[in-house]
Lab assay of single mutants.
Amino acid sequence: DVEEQIRRLEEVLKKNQPVTWNGTTYTDPNEIKKVIEELRKSM
């Protein structure tokens, strides 16, 4: 579920933690925001 994935990513973003997405680890909050944007567009 895309909305659930977005929620999880936003939680990680709030905690300022790195997130691994599709085999890539993002540590930059701006990169994580881009991933969230892409997910929103795909909905």
Results as ranks from 00 to 15, higher is better:
Glu11Ser: 06
Gln5Arg: 04
Gln17His: 06
Tyr26Glu: 01
Leu39Ser: 00
Val19Lys: 00
Thr24Asp: 09
Gln5Phe: 13
Glu3Tyr: 12
Thr27Cys: 03
Lys33Cys: 07
Ile32His: 00
Val12Tyr: 14
Asn16Glu: 06
Asp28Asn: 05
Glu4Leu: 08
Thr20Gly: 05
Ile32Pro: 00
Leu13Gln: 03
Asn30Ser: 13
Asn22Trp: 11
Glu37Cys: 08
Glu4Val: 09
Arg8Glu: 12
Asp1Arg: 11
Asn30Thr: 11
Arg8Pro: 01
Val12Leu: 15
Arg7Cys: 08
Asn30Trp: 13
Thr27Phe: 09
Tyr26Leu: 14
Val19Leu: 13
Leu39Met: 07
Thr25Ala: 03
Ile36Phe: 03
Met43Phe: 06
Gly23Ile: 00
Glu10Met: 07
Asn22Cys: 14
Thr25Asn: 03
Lys41Asp: 08
Val12Gln: 15
Val2Pro: 08
Arg40Asp: 01
Leu9Tyr: 02
Gln17Ala: 11
Gly23Phe: 01
Asp28Phe: 02
Gln5Ser: 07
Lys34Phe: 08
Glu3Gln: 13
Val12Pro: 02
Tyr26Ile: 14
Lys33Tyr: 09
Trp21Ile: 15
Lys14Thr: 12
Met43Val: 12
Ile36Asp: 00
Glu3Arg: 10
Asn22Val: 02
Lys15Asn: 14
Asn30His: 13
Arg7Lys: 10
Leu39Tyr: 03
Gly23Asp: 14
Leu13Pro: 00
Val35Cys: 03
Leu9Ile: 10
Thr20Glu: 15
Ile6Ala: 02
Arg40His: 05
Gln5Pro: 02
Ile36Tyr: 02
Pro18His: 07
Leu39Cys: 02
Ile36Ala: 01
Leu13His: 04
Asp28Gly: 03
Val12Trp: 08
Glu37Asp: 14
Asn22Ser: 02
Glu37Ser: 09
Ile32Tyr: 01
Pro29Asp: 04
Glu37His: 06
Pro29Leu: 07
Arg7Pro: 01
Ile32Asp: 00
Glu37Thr: 06
Thr27Gln: 05
Asp1Gln: 11
Leu9Cys: 02
Val12Phe: 15
Arg8Ser: 11
Asp1Val: 10
Lys41Val: 10
Asn22Asp: 14
Trp21Asp: 05
Lys33Arg: 13
Lys34Gly: 07
Glu31Lys: 04
Lys15Glu: 09
Glu3Phe: 12
Pro29Tyr: 06
Glu37Met: 09
Asn16Cys: 13
Thr25His: 06
Ile36Ser: 00
Val35Pro: 00
Leu39Ala: 02
Thr25Pro: 02
Val35Phe: 07
Asn22Glu: 15
Lys33His: 06
Leu13Ile: 12
Asp1Trp: 14
Glu10Thr: 10
Asp28Arg: 01
Lys41Trp: 05
Tyr26Trp: 04
Lys41Leu: 12
Gln5Thr: 14
Lys41Pro: 01
Gln17Val: 09
Arg40Met: 09
Glu4His: 09
Asp28Pro: 00
Thr25Met: 08
Gln5Met: 14
Trp21Pro: 06
Arg8Val: 14
Gly23Met: 00
Asn16Trp: 12
Arg7Trp: 04
Lys14Pro: 04
Thr24Phe: 08
Glu31Phe: 05
Leu13Lys: 02
Thr25Arg: 02
Lys15Tyr: 12
Asn22Leu: 10
Leu13Gly: 02
Ile32Gly: 01
Val35Thr: 02
Pro29Ser: 06
Glu10Lys: 04
Ser42Arg: 11
Ile6Phe: 03
Leu9Met: 12
Thr24Glu: 14
Asp1Thr: 13
Glu11Val: 05
Lys15His: 12
Thr20Asp: 15
Glu11Asp: 10
Thr25Asp: 05
Glu10Asn: 05
Pro18Phe: 04
Arg8Gly: 08
Glu10His: 04
Lys34Pro: 02
Glu10Gln: 06
Thr20His: 15
Val19Ser: 02
Leu39Phe: 03
Pro18Val: 09
Glu11Tyr: 03
Leu9Ala: 02
Asn30Gly: 12
Glu31Tyr: 03
Leu13Trp: 05
Arg40Asn: 03
Trp21His: 15
Val35His: 02
Val12Ser: 15
Glu3Asp: 06
Glu10Trp: 04
Ile32Cys: 02
Ser42Phe: 09
Gly23Trp: 00
Arg7Leu: 08
Thr20Arg: 13
Gln5Leu: 14
Gln17Asn: 05
Met43Thr: 08
Arg8Trp: 15
Glu10Pro: 00
Glu38Lys: 08
Ile32Gln: 00
Leu13Ala: 06
Asn16His: 09
Thr27Glu: 08
Ser42Met: 14
Asn16Ser: 08
Met43Ser: 09
Val19Trp: 15
Ile32Val: 08
Asn22Gly: 14
Leu13Tyr: 06
Glu4Gln: 11
Glu31Asn: 03
Glu3Trp: 12
Glu4Trp: 06
Val2Ile: 14
Val35Gln: 02
Lys34Met: 11
Leu9His: 00
Glu31Ala: 08
Arg40Ile: 10
Lys14Arg: 14
Tyr26Gly: 01
Ile36Thr: 01
Ser42Val: 09
Val12Met: 15
Arg7Gln: 09
Asp28Lys: 03
Glu3Asn: 09
Glu37Val: 07
Lys14Gln: 13
Ile32Arg: 00
Glu38Cys: 12
Leu13Glu: 02
Asn30Ala: 14
Glu31Ile: 05
Glu38Met: 14
Val19Glu: 06
Glu10Asp: 04
Pro18Tyr: 05
Arg40Gln: 07
Pro18Glu: 15
Asp28Tyr: 02
Gln5Trp: 13
Asp28Trp: 02
Pro18Arg: 04
Glu10Ile: 06
Glu31Leu: 07
Lys15Arg: 11
Asp28Ile: 02
Ile32Met: 03
Thr27Ala: 06
Glu11Gly: 04
Val19Arg: 00
Glu3Leu: 13
Tyr26Asp: 01
Glu4Lys: 10
Leu39His: 01
Met43Asn: 10
Pro29Val: 08
Pro18Leu: 07
Arg8Tyr: 15
Val2Asp: 04
Glu11Thr: 06
Glu3Gly: 11
Glu38Thr: 10
Ile32Ser: 01
Glu38His: 11
Val12Ile: 12
Gln17Trp: 14
Asn30Cys: 11
Thr25Tyr: 13
Lys15Thr: 15
Val2Met: 12
Val12Lys: 14
Leu9Val: 03
Asp28Ser: 05
Val35Trp: 03
Thr24Leu: 11
Tyr26Met: 11
Asn30Lys: 11
